[in-house]
Design a protein around this nucleic acid. Structure first.
Lengths: 366, 366
DNA sequence: CTGAAAGCGCTTACAG
DNA sequence: CTGAAAGCGCTTACAG
């Protein structure tokens, strides 16, 4: 259905054709098209006109082979290997659009690839010269990746990662202010009168973003003279099913709690499902808040209070950082601001009129 | 932060290094690594071992330049130029994951790019040899694209589009069964007792997918002896704001309606917002159904009845079709099955106990 | 400011 | 089954 097998109807147009058409040498065509300032404006325009007339575009492969850049950025999504080909975290999905647009704005193509965290991904992209630089995206155990990142960096590979920003980062990172995000969620829940706030999310150093959110949470508690209680923290990774399990684990512990701060919206939504299955009402019995503001967050019932990360800005910053790295311009890691978005799921005090409910009580009701 | 400016620490390893290491010629290395069957198994293994030992990967640019394939597929998202850098249609987003995975499975990299429908996109990808084939994704006015597609096809460009599958298609297409999807929605609404079913969506030939859905809708009405009423059709494109506007237009017409069949979930969600703002209850006053089953659909209130398209299968089929095209294997357009997912938003008859409500009535209440 | 020439790292006829 | 050689279409020193 696509024309004779293996036959392209036209011979490829090359820079030599443009040279002939414009009456200059092939080398000049190349210079003119690359915007080399040594080329005279008049020549540049003649070449540009010839290229347009013949619908010429520079061959990416030849250009990439001869020069030292490919004009391509690689976006690597890291996922834990899920058996069930499941959906991508919607938060990352919404960053994808902005990363793509930003790449285009800088004149780069974007190669995307899903990687399992365990796999030998480092060789592939930089070394086979598929891309000039790499953006790393994904929650995950960054600690396990550190040696690889350091090796890559030593080889001169340009890479920027999304996530936790810390001093010992093996590469330039862009992330949002997880600490203050976590603190503002906890403060908000405390303002609602909640006192026994559970935290659902792996708060170990294996998940530095969650860990920062938890640190913010703890600081807010501390400022209110409340001691953190380990029984209120349950590990979870960022998925609905993990959130559901974590909530069930929490319920099984039989401890009292009046709020849940979930380390991500997916965890929060999973947890709300578990609560609802037990007949526990949100926010009347338990206030719930998440993190990320995925598109779904405003549509669940009740709408989810969460922390908004500006994915547009995040994507743009990632790309800009990487481009600067490629151009050998100075660049530092960036912490982006976030803000709390209060929706109904966390309005606990308002949910009940009774002032006595402001004190700790059992979140578990039947 | 990434090592000395512009300096890569190692000299690039080439196929000549592997040749020397394995004690064969460079040509043999190339053949062995490409899986050329002429190479003896013993040699192939020695080369593979050498490549692994030296962490060698074939240079994509050189390979792409010399050979006639790039090992890359391009995914082009078409969007109407939205001024507000807004979010991508979640339906397409969820196909992205499956397309990426499928590409990897066939050994292709995936280049993605957002394109404005009006722009001169055709030259870029095929002609600059960035990709061996192109996947076109997006709702949009395909009719306006037909000449371009035909030109591309004449040039031997491999391309596969998602969307309407019709005889006069200018390229191989993969799409879901929009006609039967539309019919099953309408039948379901009729089963609920609805008789005046509005259709929100551009049903012209400019939006062939919506048009097919509308055709299915009309056929179901016809089978029930109901004449289609133009006053019940309002144009909308696939966005929440457009859906909201369309619902407002419908309400402004002052005509009676007891159900809305929205041509996409985003339209449906926008319409539900408009209804809710007027105090019209869903599904009690007006039943609503959508199309696509975006992740949000199950979370809106009330949960949205919709048509499920299998995005996993869709992505896999798109990639498989394109790969077959590239390999010059015979390939036809594919229509994928879909199924109705009934949720609460359409349970109109059940919503009210009164049997007399089964007949036409005003959807507009205050 | 422009041209002639080298060469990036492969793939693939062409021989043998 | 394997090797020597040509050449894909560029970019960029090197001259002038």
């Amino acid at each position: 259905m696509q024309g004779p097998a293996g036959v392209r109807s036209k011979k490829r147009i090359t820079s030599f054709d443009i040279a002939q058409f414009a009456g200059v040498s092939q080398a000049t065509v190349s210079r003119a098209l690359r915007g080399n300032p040594e080329v005279s404006e008049q020549t540049r325009q003649r070449v540009a006109a010839a290229a347009a007339a013949l619908h010429y575009t520079v061959d990416k492969n030849a250009s990439g082979l001869r020069g030292n850049s490919t004009g391509t950025l690689a976006l690597l999504f890291f996922e834990d290997p899920t058996p069930d080909d499941s959906h991508i975290n919607p938060f990352f999905l919404s960053m994808l659009g902005s990363i793509t647009r930003s790449s285009a704005r800088y004149g780069y193509d974007l190669l995307i690839s899903f990687q399992e965290l365990g796999r030998d991904w480092h060789a592939d992209f930089a070394e086979s010269k598929k891309a000039d630089g790499i953006i790393l995206l994904g929650y995950g155990d960054y600690l396990a990746q550190t040696p690889r990142l350091q090796k890559l960096r030593a080889q001169g590979t340009r890479l920027v990662s999304w996530g936790a920003v810390r001093a010992d980062q093996p590469c330039v990172a862009v992330g949002c202010d997880n600490f203050h995000g976590g603190r503002s969620v906890a403060e908000h829940l405390l303002d609602q009168g909640c006192r026994r706030i559970a935290f659902l999310g792996d708060a170990s150093h294996h998940f530095p973003e969650f860990q920062e959110r938890y640190r913010g949470h703890q600081q807010a508690l501390h400022a209110h003279g409340i001691a953190a209680d380990d029984v209120l923290q349950v590990d979870a990774e960022s998925s609905q099913s993990s959130g559901q399990q974590a909530a069930e684990t929490l319920l099984a512990r039989g401890t009292k709690f009046d709020a849940i701060f979930a380390a991500s919206d997916l965890i929060a939504i999973g947890a709300m499902g578990a609560l609802s299955a037990r007949g526990i009402r949100v926010p009347d019995d338990v206030a719930v808040a998440g993190f990320d503001d995925i598109p779904m967050a405003g549509f669940v019932n009740p709408p989810l209070t969460t922390v908004v990360q500006d994915t547009q800005l995040a994507g743009a910053t990632l790309v800009e950082s990487l481009v600067r790295l490629i151009r050998n311009e100075p660049i530092e890691s960036t912490i982006l601001p976030m803000h709390l978005m209060v929706r109904r799921s966390s309005l606990w005090r308002q949910a009940s009129g009774a002032p006595d409910r402001r004190r700790g009580r059992t979140g578990i009701r039947r």
